[in-house]
Amino acid sequence: MHMFEYLQPRTAIEAEALLLANEEARAISGGMSLLPAMKLRLAAPSHLIDLSGIEEMRGTSVDDNVLTIGAMTRHAEVARSSVVRQAIPGLAALASGIGDRQVRNRGTIGGSIANSDPAACYPASVLGLGATVMTPRRRIAADDFFVGVFETALEPGELVTHIAFPIPERSAYVKFQQPASRFALVGVLVSRSRDGTVRVAVTGASSHVFRVPSLEQALAAEFTPGAVENIAIDTEELNSDIHGDADYRAHLIPVLTARAVDLASKPDAVGKI
């Protein structure tokens, strides 16, 4: 690891200022993605701006059918939170399936979505639930947030402070693990809002999380596993690697979507995914 300076601001505004003041500075929240990169000498920040002391970036609350989660909330906290489990049980379940115990106790929701790893789980929830990403400067709609491999709409020095999830009528996330990393080889989040809008977000399969309109339309018409089972997915934009070619991922998308629909339809099972 290269040398760096360590700073611990108390507010998000202060943190943004420190990031802007030092070109090579990086925010660190859980460190579960950034620290391995530093150890491998793939990242060499001049300053680490530790967000863990920023109280306003923590905690969960529900207001007017919107669940708001602070960016510094750890995966384990989301998994355990009675607020989250009651509002969007599938989201708590998603968090409980990330990595291992150590990772869940350190990693944060803000770090995960800011990182936009193509195989990460949280981005599927942000996009699949139509959430809004909040920063000290603005609110960014999920559909505009994820733009590429490890790339988001965040500007230099801009921090995620909260994520606001509209509470759906039902939702479920099904993750098919990549055998080695146990990230998502393909992960699908399906949600149906109270007004009947269906969103299907897929992670692990492409450069970044994306929606599948054909599946959404079919499910809007009929929210059953059978409605999506035979829908073919174009392989064009999909990843191929040693764990699965694009055609395998394309095949898994409707299969996992059907399973997520099935799971979302069983109120008692939802909490278990």
Binding site: A79, A93, I98, V174, A258
Partner: peptide, 16 residues
């Protein structure tokens, strides 16, 4: 059940 025992896809079935 279509989802019974679907092992690999259920997040918290692994890694505990």
């Amino acid at each position: 059940s279509a989802t019974a025992g679907n092992g690999n896809q259920v997040g918290n079935a692994h890694g505990e």
